[in-house]
Design a protein around this nucleic acid. Sequence first.
DNA 1: GTGAAAGCGCTAACAC
DNA 2: GTGTTAGCGCTTTCAC
Lengths: 308, 308
Amino acid sequence: MSARKQKDKVLEVATQIKYKPNFNARALAKRSTHNIGVILPYITNYYFSNVITGVQEVANNKDFNITLFLTNDSAEKEVTIIKNLPVSSLDGLLVSVSSNPASSSHFQELVDDGLPIVFFDRVDNNIKTSKVMQDDYNGAFTAVEHLIKMGYKRIAHIAGPKELEFTQKRLQGYKDALKKNKIGLNEQWIVYSGFSQESGEKDTYQLLKSRQKPDAIFAVNDRKAVGAMIALKKKNIRVGPDIGVIGFTNDPISMIISPTLSTVAEPAIEIGKIACELLLKQIKKKTIPPEEITLHCPLIVRESTQRK
Amino acid sequence: MSARKQKDKVLEVATQIKYKPNFNARALAKRSTHNIGVILPYITNYYFSNVITGVQEVANNKDFNITLFLTNDSAEKEVTIIKNLPVSSLDGLLVSVSSNPASSSHFQELVDDGLPIVFFDRVDNNIKTSKVMQDDYNGAFTAVEHLIKMGYKRIAHIAGPKELEFTQKRLQGYKDALKKNKIGLNEQWIVYSGFSQESGEKDTYQLLKSRQKPDAIFAVNDRKAVGAMIALKKKNIRVGPDIGVIGFTNDPISMIISPTLSTVAEPAIEIGKIACELLLKQIKKKTIPPEEITLHCPLIVRESTQRK
DNA sequence: GTGAAAGCGCTAACAC
DNA sequence: GTGTTAGCGCTTTCAC
């Protein structure tokens, strides 16, 4: 029997007896697992669930599996997860950090150990690795300039937690758009809190109590914007004519709520795909230098920023 | 030095040099990986993302990691995933099947190989394993009886894909509620299609074209109900007074849309938790017989089923 | 109890 | 090329 035929025969028998290689043995011998970890705050929102979908798609194409870790946006849980991370069964890590991180040392240790890491969305700038994010600064800038163009003059901002990089960028975009258009900044009109719809509602009540009421609200994300709209509706204030509202994300809810919500779109799936591609590239060749990629966020105009 | 002290010393040094056990080696020797796979259609919706969150919570507490697989609701992709499943690095599997499955053999093979499997939500009744689901039949029954009590008489149903178990159960609940209340069944008022909002919108246009128009719509899920509401709004038909609408899920959007959407609540997180607990139990002791658990779904009355 | 050795299933290095 | 063997890092068995 020729070598060729013998090989075919072996292969045939292999499928016949349903031979499946043992991945643990292979990983042990090769020191490579074809498995990447994904750490993020939660998946029960539009943005993160779409990022994961993007990650999954490219990972799947390259025969990588993904192990999911949820921090529930708690810095302590994040540290616990990292401390117990099954590093030996991970070729790399995709991370979106929790709010209020105490330090970066837990991530630094992993990097020092040689584990490839790529941050997305909520990045940790103390760590020298690849990062992919949306253009938070320009997105915010565009949103606020849109409000100004629509004739709003007293523009408030309901922001996220102060510690997060992207919160700061959106805040800066807000401030710079005001400055460029020669509109004074009122610190009372900036409220910091969490990312939830409830936070948005509360923040809005607080704004409505200020001596000089704002005539527009730029929310750090769509969920807070929805909260703001609910608060305004409860106070019988018309969204648009009385107070304009604009969000950030382009959550499908923005098209369903009434009036429909103007917003800045985040390319969530794309972020997931690119982050995963970057990580895979780094896994293949550990020496490539870190890259930082920023994706454009288009303005989407709907009803909530129409004065009439 | 005493044995006790020596042990302490070793442990101390272990943490000092940051010793981390190799999980692949351990898995290879123990034939157990502390890793479970989760296969589901997608995570970009309220229900599945919450199920995952529940799964994650109990898995995490027991030091199990989860590997995520997304079928994108495609039967072919599901088969591919199963064929390439890294069985040797999985202690068990949690599955919600895709629509239109061709057969059950791919799951049966895994079961035959001794891999513990628990189905949730979209179960495969050809396979003898544990299953956890919501009470689809009674949930649907309650929803339709609620419509009848509110005075609606010509009740339509926009359903999901015919092949899925839970679609059939919700359909049966619909039919039985009509029968019990002596309301004739009109087959024209039952429309089958996908689960998306767009499907709900299309289905509704189709219903509006029928000779005798329905005065209420029971949608198989909230997304389709939202689609129905959008269709009705576009046709200037008042949701509630003209045509009542009720959904199934209790997606947060049901509280945000206007009018707010009556629905039947699915205990998504609970489903995830229980499914994972059941799987972990089975992993621990492979001989325990399969269990089937059904969770109650409470009716939630909101504005979309108020006639005035 | 304690310590040595075999073996989990695979890959890579080595000798032929 | 082709076939053999050592070794990945752990657990478990077995002899002491």
